[in-house]
Write a protein that binds this DNA or RNA. Sequence first.
DNA 1: CGTACCGTTGAGGTGAGTCAAAGTAAGTGG
DNA 2: CCACTTACTTTGACTCACCTCAACGGTACG
Lengths: 248, 248
Amino acid sequence: MTPCLCTNRTTCRFYQHLHNSRLSETDLQHSEDGRKKRIYKRGAYIFEQGRNSTGLYCVQSGHVLLKHLDKFGNETAFRVVGPGELMGQRSFFGKDNHMASGQALSRTYICFHPKAVVDQLLNTSVHLARCFLHDLARDPGPADTLKLRNLKLPLRIRLIYLLVILKEHSDVTSHEGSLTFNLPLKRLDIAALISARPESVTRVIRDMETDGIALFHDHTVTVPHLDKLLEIIGSNLESPGAQLAEGS
Amino acid sequence: MTPCLCTNRTTCRFYQHLHNSRLSETDLQHSEDGRKKRIYKRGAYIFEQGRNSTGLYCVQSGHVLLKHLDKFGNETAFRVVGPGELMGQRSFFGKDNHMASGQALSRTYICFHPKAVVDQLLNTSVHLARCFLHDLARDPGPADTLKLRNLKLPLRIRLIYLLVILKEHSDVTSHEGSLTFNLPLKRLDIAALISARPESVTRVIRDMETDGIALFHDHTVTVPHLDKLLEIIGSNLESPGAQLAEGS
DNA sequence: CGTACCGTTGAGGTGAGTCAAAGTAAGTGG
DNA sequence: CCACTTACTTTGACTCACCTCAACGGTACG
């Protein structure tokens, strides 16, 4: 039996939670026995919108794109899930059907925790429930969406935001200020994430390359100067000042 | 002591949770004693982005606009919270600073539940924790954002989506297929919610009125035929140029 | 009767979408 | 390994929905 990455507390959120929750040995063993390892090819769906939630998914390796299809046929990608992250929490805890589909962007190894197992663990530990609450509350998804889909921001800025977000979930090799990481997305996927069209993505990427801001080659991004990239976004225009108006 | 709406389980989410969680009488009393009633004038901030979370806010009456300020100084509204709804859960459970500010759109009555009280209750009941988990997971905010900020959708469609969403949280009086409800938003607020400019909002509203789709008058919206409204959303994807009525 | 804010209207500009077509990579089967 | 099909990417010309800027009208309030 090959060791499952999911038993490594540094790489798996689920496992971290379990070990922070002072569960008994039998409970821990129970979760170990319950989990299932699954492998998906590129393009395969790990779960599909509209289906029942059957448990929690933990990504061991690979990347998963979450897409939402509204009732009128519009497909909108809103997130990329990378190694160590959990998926399907929202529908699991909301006791609802999946509100999105998860599609493997590359060969993806998943550790699946069935509903029955997770439910039982939750009921034995308030602390575990609070861990999940904490996780769900800190989900950067909603905040990211505000950045990536802000019409007021030009396309180039939204793309840079996307790079910054994806960088956090990728293996980054840095070398003298420049950094390189894998971008397992097609033009169409990128477009869907920043609410644009693939042709426009191509054009923005071309322009960024001629400007020397970032280089896109064979699903790999190279940023010569991260500072330069962040400067374009941030431009230290920050001033959170607002008056305090306390009611009584 | 004036009766707090927050003790009415049909109007307050927080109270619903407490009563579904089989808490002891002393615990219930504890929460009653702990909560604080607060009143805010129009324009006042109930909580501010960047500050520490100090507890949970339950809206009794009035409406609150949630806004996010990014590093550029761009203000983005992303939600309207109405009576009976909770606010500040994300930062409370995430143990993080508020990621948004909550501003009263009209005179607003808030029931505030301090951190200490909520924390203690949470620790005594796994069920309560799961209620909040369930709530947070079902938060329609992220899904709504996808609709309201989808660049592929024309402004008119986004505005209609907004109306449909707001309708759910308002007192709607319907009469023979037509319905009327309160819209406590200024043009600038509407613009911020659908990622547009106030001038554009004015124009779209004007066009919708000439088309007889919806009437905006003095912060009140009247929709003559809801079917017609929903139909427009649906017909959008199939044929790009499918307007039901011409504008001139 | 100003002052201030909000809402409306018009003229003009542009970023990004659309459409169409060619170029390139990736799979498939013999 | 090569033909063949299929999927993805790039490019250019054109168009348009919305933004920007600027001026004006309404309403509330001191």
